[in-house]
């Protein structure tokens, strides 16, 4: 984001359960600050709608009532639910927002005051006009996809406010725009205070999933919040998966799928024109998938 007489403004706020950093480059610092404030407001709105912890969020309202009656949600929540539904269908349930049940059982999420049982994404009915209904008593958590969506909304807001170049990073879900490529470091999967390496991104998003911070012992075995909805097993290895795509929401969701399916996720990555990078415990890449159809390389 360097050019003659340009300034860069960089801010960070605690949102979405993590730290969200927004940088914007341009000529007028005041205008950039206003644009960044607006972008944070968009992220805060996603937080407000999709937080599992806030009893007034769309997610909590669905978890409370959607088994008994249709629940009308915000168009943004509806978009994320539709996105999640597509990823569940295309991954045969590896990606499944109803695994919230298991996250509650492992104390990654607080226990909501509702009855729920073992169900799947197939029991969620997305009705007309942003209405949602559950066929079975279940709970959902959008933690695996909402951060990416929030990053996309923040980028959209920066652009709408006339910003020419920017970076939004929500706890590791990154998207960049502007003419200059940006170097994004990738955390070492077993030593996250270090970068194992970096990737150059231009007009593109990248999300990374790893379990260094979240892995814990449940009895004798390790568990993590990175769950395969198809097998019900959680990731235990200190590896990391990064996925690059045009938008951050698909990148976010695809990391979870690649974590479980590894090379078998190639057709799905191809469909989303996404790239993938799998880092092993020693920080070395064991698999790099290049999206075959290139829509972003115009150097």
């Amino acid at each position: 984001m360097r050019s003659r007489s340009s300034v860069e403004v960089r801010r960070a706020r605690p949102l979405l359960g993590t730290f969200v950093q927004i940088s914007a480059g341009g000529k007028d610092a005041i205008a950039l600050e206003l644009a960044i404030n607006a972008a944070f407001a968009a992220v805060a709105e996603v937080h407000r709608l999709m937080s599992f912890h806030d009893p007034e969020s769309d997610v909590s309202r669905m978890n409370r009532d959607a088994f008994h009656k249709s629940v009308r949600v915000h168009p943004w929540t509806s978009r994320v639910l539709k996105g999640a539904y597509e990823f569940s269908r295309n991954s045969d349930g590896v990606f499944d927002i109803t695994t919230a049940r298991q996250l509650v059982n492992w104390n990654y999420l607080p226990r909501p005051d509702v009855r729920f049982s073992s169900r799947s994404w197939r029991d969620i009915i997305l009705e007309e006009k942003c209405n949602v209904r559950f066929r079975q008593p279940l709970i959902v958590d959008l933690g695996g996809i909402a951060k990416g969506f929030a990053v996309d909304r923040a980028i959209e807001t920066l652009k709408a406010n006339g910003v020419m170049a920017g970076i939004v990073n929500a706890g590791g879900d990154v998207r960049v725009f502007g003419s200059t490529p940006q170097l994004i470091h990738v955390r070492h999967p077993a030593a996250p205070g270090r970068a194992a390496g970096m990737v150059r991104l231009r007009e593109r998003a990248m999300a990374t999933s790893g379990i260094y911070f979240t892995r814990k012992k449940d009895g004798v075995r390790y568990v993590s919040p990175l769950l395969d909805g198809h097998t019900g097993r959680s990731a235990r290895e200190l590896i990391s998966v990064s996925v690059a795509a045009t938008e951050c929401m698909p990148a976010d969701a695809l990391t979870k799928i690649v974590f479980s399916l590894r090379e078998k996720a190639a057709p799905l990555l191809e469909r989303h024109r996404a790239d993938a990078l799998l880092l092993e415990r020693d920080g070395a890449p064991s698999w790099i998938f290049h999206s075959p159809c290139d829509t972003h390389d115009q150097t």
């Binding site: 970076i167 994004i184 970068a195």
Partner: peptide, 15 residues
């Protein structure tokens, strides 16, 4: 590059 401006990886909680 000692100035790591953006890092992608496991999410650190803001708790």
């Amino acid at each position: 590059d000692s100035d790591i401006k953006n890092i992608s990886g496991a999410t650190l909680s803001c708790r």
